[in-house]
Design a protein around this nucleic acid. Structure first.
Length: 125
DNA sequence: CCCATGACCACAA
DNA sequence: ATTGTGGCCATGG
């Protein structure tokens, strides 16, 4: 059972981890994003590491809806490839039409998906 | 409680 | 361009 390992008691109703999962879950197929982008979108610019930790806690939590393989570092490198189970992070990305070369996303900037694009924009300006 | 590590990022030299 | 250090938050020893 989920022992609600959400160490955010001080934040009240806000769940950084949940927010991360929510954002990653919104990542369209064939797109990728970076940890820093998510962290920044959540307001935790320096919390990029938390994103990695949150994703690390994805498996085993039933969060299969979280395509962590679409999350790479700011360099488009598959830093978390070592933490993925078979067939592997690269295979998952390639299955979505993303090309990987030398553990790096090809046209990363072009496939880059901005979390801010999914955030509620009430005025856009 | 203090220290070290981690799927990171940004800045300074 | 490359290397080093600091910052950030959480977890484990």
């Amino acid at each position: 059972m989920a022992k609600r390992s959400t160490p955010v008691e001080g934040l009240g109703e806000v769940d950084p981890y949940g927010a991360i999962y929510a954002l990653v879950r919104q990542i369209p197929r064939g797109r990728v994003t970076s940890y820093g982008a998510i962290a920044e979108a959540l307001g935790t610019r320096g919390g990029a590491r938390l994103v990695g930790w949150a994703l690390n806690a994805v498996p085993g939590s039933g969060l299969t809806d979280v395509p962590a393989h679409r999350v790479v570092n700011r360099d488009g490198l598959l830093s978390g490839r070592h933490h993925f189970a078979p067939p592997g992070m690269q295979a998952l990305l390639e299955a979505e039409g993303i090309r990987i070369e030398d553990d790096r996303v090809v046209d990363f900037e072009r496939l880059f998906w901005r979390p801010l694009d999914a955030l509620p924009r009430e005025g856009s300006f």
